[in-house]
């Protein structure tokens, strides 16, 4: 593999990692603070992408679509919270799994009814069009760089929010021991709603940012949801820092693995076998990584306190 290809794949890996972080951040907060398994987090990502496409079709501008879709993502998230999730916080994890699975089925089908089953796309905004020369023989699309930058920006923002503000302190305390936080007179329901709304908006934001480079279709959130769960489990549930590092790790391992494993397999095996085994190992890598991490650290890399 050449240095250029390696650089491109590293950037692609970062891009996937950032996207995963945006989804995993909300998931790990909701899980860590509210002890709520929200399988519907993936369809909220999908909804963000669809809302962005719909908003673009009416406004014709990426930027107003971005803003509108963010607000609508938050709105739909809070509607779901009010009608369904709110009643599940003190329930068994498996009840939450069943109910949020119902939400997945409903929303995946609903977008199919409203927007059709065919993949849609969102054009890249003019401001971020084209590509720039990063190295000799290496041009990389500006939009993808902007995506990576905005993800890193959100990470910094979250870091400041969680470690430097009062609400962040409550969130951290909530992830460690929610009962004590409630006993100290904090309105835990309101805290839950803020955390949930914020998580929903992050997932929606990921969907909006992904819309121009991935196809917008029903079920697009399902596989990312599984990857996001891999991320939060490796990072340690409730830990933003863990989610960030694990997301980048998963993004890089998955992307680089896909281009490297077949090459490595070819060195060890006859070509025909290598072509079979390579892609399979590449798809497995992140799961092998997760099993390995959990074997040595059964609560992930940065456990947030509550086991």
């Amino acid at each position: 593999m050449s240095a250029t290809l390696l650089a491109v794949q590293t950037l692609n890996g970062l891009q996937l990692g950032v996207l995963l972080f945006l989804i995993a951040a909300g998931l790990t907060l909701v899980f860590g603070v509210m002890d709520f398994i929200n399988l519907a987090h993936g369809v909220q990502y999908m909804l963000g992408a669809y809302l962005a496409v719909a908003a673009y079709q009416t406004t014709g501008s990426f930027w107003s679509a971005l803003l509108l879709a963010l607000v609508l993502s938050l709105f739909f998230g809070l509607v779901l919270e009010f009608f369904v999730f709110r009643h599940l916080y003190d329930r068994d994890h498996l009840d939450q799994v069943l109910a949020t699975f119902g939400v997945i089925l409903f929303l995946n089908e609903a977008v199919k009814v409203v927007w059709g089953a065919a993949p849609l796309s969102l054009p890249i905004p003019e401001l971020l069009g084209g590509s720039i020369q990063l190295m000799e023989n290496l041009r990389y699309p500006v939009y993808r760089i902007a995506l990576i930058a905005s993800g890193l920006g959100v990470a910094v923002l979250l870091y400041v929010l969680v470690t430097r503000t009062r609400i962040g302190m409550l969130v951290r305390a909530g992830a460690t021991n929610p009962d004590i936080v409630a006993a100290l007179g904090v309105n835990i329901r309101r805290l839950f709603m803020i955390v949930f709304g914020f998580g929903t908006m992050l997932a929606g934001f990921a969907g909006i940012m992904a819309a121009p480079i991935l196809s917008v279709e029903p079920g697009m959130g399902d596989n990312l949801l599984i990857l996001a769960f891999v991320v939060i489990v490796i990072g340690g549930i409730g830990s933003i820092r863990g989610a960030f590092l694990a997301a980048l790790l998963i993004g890089l391992v998955d992307t680089l693995g896909r281009s490297l494993t077949t090459d490595v397999a070819r060195m060890l095996l006859p070509p025909a076998a290598a072509n079979d085994v390579g892609p399979a190992i590449a798809s497995m890598l992140i799961y092998i990584l997760m099993a390995g991490v959990l074997f040595f650290r059964p609560s992930g890399l940065f456990p947030a306190g509550r086991s």
Binding site: V84, H87, L88, L98, A99, G102, N108, K112
Partner: peptide, 15 residues
């Protein structure tokens, strides 16, 4: 579009 009915049905069972 049976999932539009099936999904909410699962939610109702849980609730």
């Amino acid at each position: 579009h049976w999932r539009l009915i099936f999904g909410p049905l699962l939610i109702l069972v849980v609730l």
